[in-house]
């Protein structure tokens, strides 16, 4: 499956890019994080503290156990600070 993976705020800065296309067999968000973290130290650094990472699947706030079947877009970001 092909996913558009987006990164925001300090996660984007740590990984060094705002988005990328990822070919993956990850079944859940947790699988995708493990797959990305195994790639390179900069990914491992970005995901080193899972409690600091939030995720949206197809622009809906989700969690680490969320399935990725049928998903097109996954975004990783720190807790939101709007308002």
């Amino acid at each position: 499956m092909t996913l558009e993976v987006l990164y925001f705020a300090w996660i984007r800065e740590r990984i060094g890019l705002p988005r990328e296309t990822v070919d993956t067999q990850a079944a859940t968000v947790a699988d995708l994080i493990a797959e990305l973290s195994a790639r390179e130290p900069r990914y491992a650094a970005a995901f080193s503290d899972p409690s600091a990472v939030r995720v949206a699947v197809d622009q809906t706030l989700s969690d680490i156990e969320s399935p990725l079947e049928g998903a097109r877009e996954v975004a990783f970001f720190p807790p939101m600070t709007g308002g």
Binding site: F8, A9, A56, L61, A75, F77, P78, P79, M80, T81, G82, G83
Partner: peptide
């Protein structure tokens, strides 16, 4: 807005 809208302040 504070914690459910995807904005990040630097």
């Amino acid at each position: 807005l504070k914690s459910r809208a995807p904005f990040w302040k630097k």
